[in-house]
Design a protein around this nucleic acid. Structure first.
Length: 489
RNA sequence: GGGUCGAUAGCUCAAUGGUAGAGCAGCGUCCUUUUAAGUCGUUGGUUGAGGGUUCGAAUCCCUCUCGACCCA
């Protein structure tokens, strides 16, 4: 034995590595152990029979997150997918050797435990451990138990730690899969078919956004990562898939902010023989039943405005033009010459680029001055036709299109259209929008339209934004497991 | 891209030009129904990186990295 051992008691990583080495020296390799569970923590708690302690045996496994050592017995808690469950270890139940081994465990270790359920004198359902096994040694310590992890950078880069120690992150991030799963069931119940369309595309169409470019080596061509699934799904309408949807990852090579992540998830849904008004019913039914069945409430606190968003009431429906007239206090706004529009926009405190088209000036007022004030669910209808080339022109107003944008909490949640299915109108809309850049037009889509696309309603739903809204999150990063960050130093 | 703010022990935070501290975690002790368990003791720092000012820098200045918020 060496008489001078280095003091590593301050270095938790070194202490834990030493414990692992000691275990291995006795022939125990925690990374080779196996354990068969019978219950998740929540199910185990439910399995307890009131008034009948120590009759039900369970085998549970998870990460040690609490240790309360009382000498010859300990209360500890493990965390699994369903949450925490308390375990009680007594020296005279498990035996001296096992108890000594148990004392060497660290917070963060992953263990399996078998025992019987009982209720403590403070009323907590607990497993009285009969045997246990170390299933994985944690060589790094967990963040602090009370304050959790609050450094935003570490929360995002090491999300696995965030969801271990921050229960509110865990709840929020578990709510998202429930929401997505509910949407799938809702649509499938209404005979919508979920399809998968390419992420890699020769032409990035269906939206106005800068795409990511990548390269296929053997084909020797560049591909774009899709910026929308719209044009693919409409091809399937042509093909007779009358109700289709896709919940897919979309990529847009633009800024990163509280509301934007370069990759995000969008639901796009198309229904033949429907139109934008049909989509209105669909989204209202979806969101109200989603609130009722998943959140258990129709009212959600909106952090930014302090208001309570009520999904259960009447949803306002208002024309885009009326909102503009109201915000500018000018009933003749759309007849004003461009110079007057610019002056008025600047008077409202907006920066206006003189090179902008008139509809862009108007839309700046909409997105900066109007949209953020639309907290309660609002269908903004009949947008100017320049804003989307893929929708049908309104019959009694050739300057607008048959669309709505559902806005909630000041965010655009779901745009929907009566889909343009006239191949000739569609072609001229594309050409008008593309200007000189004709190569960006999806001519293959126009060919599909010439084969005949049924009249249809279509809608896109930003899943991330919906989750921000429904979970009361402040940032898109709070509803994405691993938000995009600059590669770490 | 611009502005503001931030980075100190494993984690959460103090220390405003003069000896870098606390709580939790860790290490050692006591405790067989605890609930942020309690108890006694105790270790732990290249103050994000680099440069500068100063007798002296976590603190002031410059550059860089990463992050947050606001703006474009």
């Amino acid at each position: 034995m060496s008489d001078i051992l280095p003091d590593i008691s301050h270095d938790q990583h070194a202490v834990r590595r030493q414990k692992l080495a000691d275990l291995r020296a006795t022939g125990v390799d925690p990374f080779r152990a196996t354990f068969a569970t019978t219950h998740f923590s929540g199910d185990a708690v439910k399995a307890h029979v009131e008034g009948q302690d120590n009759t039900v045996t369970v085998a549970v496994a998870g990460r040690l997150v609490v240790i309360r050592d009382m000498g010859k017995s300990q209360f500890v808690k493990i965390l699994d997918q369903q949450g925490q469950i308390q375990l009680y270890v007594k020296k005279d139940v498990v035996g001296d050797d096992a108890y000594a081994g148990f004392k060497k465990l660290d917070l963060g270790d992953i263990i399996g435990a078998k025992g019987t359920l009982f209720k403590t004198k403070t009323g907590e359902i607990t497993v009285r451990i009969e045997s246990l096994v170390l299933l994985a040694k944690a060589l790094r310590p967990l963040p602090e138990k009370w304050h959790g992890l609050s450094d935003p950078e570490q929360v995002y880069r090491q999300r696995y730690l965030d969801v271990i120690v921050n229960p509110e992150s865990r709840t929020r991030l578990m709510l998202r899969p429930k929401i997505v799963s509910y949407i799938r069931r809702f649509l499938e119940d209404r005979k919508f078919i979920e399809v998968e369309t390419p992420v890699l595309e020769a032409t990035a169409g269906g939206a106005a956004a800068r795409p990511f470019v990548t390269h296929h080596n053997t084909l020797g061509v560049d591909f774009y990562l899709r910026i929308a699934t719209e044009l693919r799904l409409k091809r399937m309408l042509v093909g007779g898939f009358d109700r289709v949807f896709e919940i897919g990852r979309i990529f847009r090579n633009e800024g990163v902010s509280r509301r934007h992540n370069p990759e995000f998830t969008m639901l796009e849904v198309y229904e033949a023989y429907s139109d934008y008004r049909g989509m209105m019913t669909l989204i209202k039914d979806l969101l109200t039943t989603l609130c009722r069945d998943v959140l258990g409430t129709m009212k959600i606190k909106h952090a930014q405005s302090g208001q309570e968003i009520d999904f259960g009431g009447e949803w306002r429906e208002v024309r885009y033009k009326d909102l503009i007239k109201e915000a500018t206090g000018d009933a003749d706004w759309f007849a004003r010459p461009k110079a007057e529009k610019i002056a008025k926009a600047e008077a409202l405190g907006l920066g206006v680029n003189p090179a902008w088209e008139e509809f862009e000036i108007t839309n700046e007022i909409f997105s900066k001055k109007i949209e953020p004030t639309l907290i309660q669910p609002t269908f903004v209808t009949h947008l100017p036709k320049e804003l989307c080339p893929l929708a049908k022109i309104t019959l009694d107003d050739p300057t607008t299109i048959d669309v709505f944008e559902l806005t909630i909490g000041g965010m655009e949640i779901a745009p929907a259209y009566s889909e343009q299915n006239d191949p000739d109108v569609q072609r001229s809309m594309f050409e008008q929008q593309a200007g000189e850049e004709k190569q960006s037009i999806d001519y293959d889509f126009l060919l599909a339209l010439e084969h005949g696309m049924p009249p249809a309603g279509g809608m896109g739903v930003g899943i991330d934004r919906l989750c921000i809204l429904l979970t009361g999150a402040e940032s898109i990063r709070d509803v994405i497991l691993f938000p995009q960050l600059r590669p770490g130093a």
